[in-house]
Design a binder for these strands. Structure first.
Length: 290
DNA sequence: GCGACAG
DNA sequence: ATCTTGTCGC
């Protein structure tokens, strides 16, 4: 798919000041409410999501996958059955000075396409400016994708960001694609309840803007901590994921989508499979580098 | 000056 | 993110 807003394409040669200015523009353009082409409740596996105590039923097929032919959508029973939404997962891996961005596209829990791109990284990791380091590789991978996803889950923050323009928001606005940010730790903002305790699977704790979020009124809900997985018979516990709207998705739907895509692992399937694919590609790309 | 910070 | 053994839980 292609870039819809060229003015927001991440440019690593900008000064930090200009990068921040660009982020403010991105945040003003971003839509933090539902504006999806599909029913958010059906985003992933045809069945439910993770709300059930993890029995080891469908552990999902190992992704090797070439793909499938296109099955027609038409049904001959009375009502036209809509095909499940196309959900993409995005994640990166690094090899020396190169970023490997992987995008895995799923429909009803099935992998239908996988693409990747390798781009040299121009700048170091700087909290708050992550998209300027990884954005080029991500857009390059999306350019190789043959169809447009209905929704994409991106590793990292979306609205939970100092200027409400995390990597999920940056990518979403640039492509005008509905996105959700899925991070493993909190960049900024304040949980309304302590996260240092064992939360039950399916639980959500709102994250609100605090003084670190320069563009939002303190108290604004900018995302949630979401418990996609939890141990049953143990004193140990799994930390929640930090989920936030990227673009064209509200906080409730962002959390709904992540929980709907959870299949027994902490990470939702799209992101988990993209993470796995990025590692595979990394191993191969590792050699063809001088 | 100090703290604090996705991947 | 990346470098890694063992350990725990399901």
């Amino acid at each position: 798919m292609e870039v819809v807003r060229p003015e927001f394409v991440p440019d690593a040669s900008l000064s930090h000041e200009d990068m921040e200015a660009l982020q403010r523009g991105i945040a003003e353009t971003a839509v933090f409410e539902d504006d999806l082409p599909v029913d958010p409740a059906r985003v992933c596996g045809g069945s439910g999501g993770a709300s059930e105590p993890a029995t080891d039923d469908a552990q999902t097929s190992l992704a090797d996958a070439t793909d499938s032919g296109d099955a027609a959508t038409a049904t001959d029973s009375g009502v036209p059955a809509e095909a499940p939404p196309l959900v993409a997962g995005v994640d990166q891996a690094f090899v020396d000075d190169h970023a490997v961005s992987a995008v895995v596209l799923l429909r009803g829990g099935e992998v239908i396409e996988r693409v990747y791109a390798v781009e040299p990284v121009e700048i170091p990791y700087i909290p708050g400016l992550l998209s300027f380091r990884e954005g080029t590789a991500i857009l390059s991978a999306f350019d190789a994708l043959s169809r447009d996803p209905d929704l994409a889950l991106v590793d990292g923050s979306g609205r939970i960001h100092f200027r409400e323009a995390g990597i999920a928001t940056h990518v979403g606005v640039t492509l005008d694609l509905p996105t959700v940010g899925v991070a493993k730790s909190l960049l900024c903002g304040a949980p309304r309840e302590s996260l240092d305790r064992k939360l039950p699977q399916g639980a959500r704790v709102a994250i609100e803007a605090d003084g670190d979020v320069a563009t939002a009124e303190p108290g604004t809900r900018i995302g949630d901590a979401v418990q996609t997985r939890q141990f049953e018979n143990s004193d140990r516990y799994v930390n929640p994921l930090i989920v936030s709207p990227g673009h064209r998705v509200g906080a409730d739907t962002a959390a709904d989508a992540v929980l709907a895509c959870a299949a027994g692992y902490k990470l939702p399937e799209p992101t988990r499979l993209a993470d796995q694919y990025a590692d595979e590609v990394k191993a191969e790309v590792r050699e063809e580098l001088d």
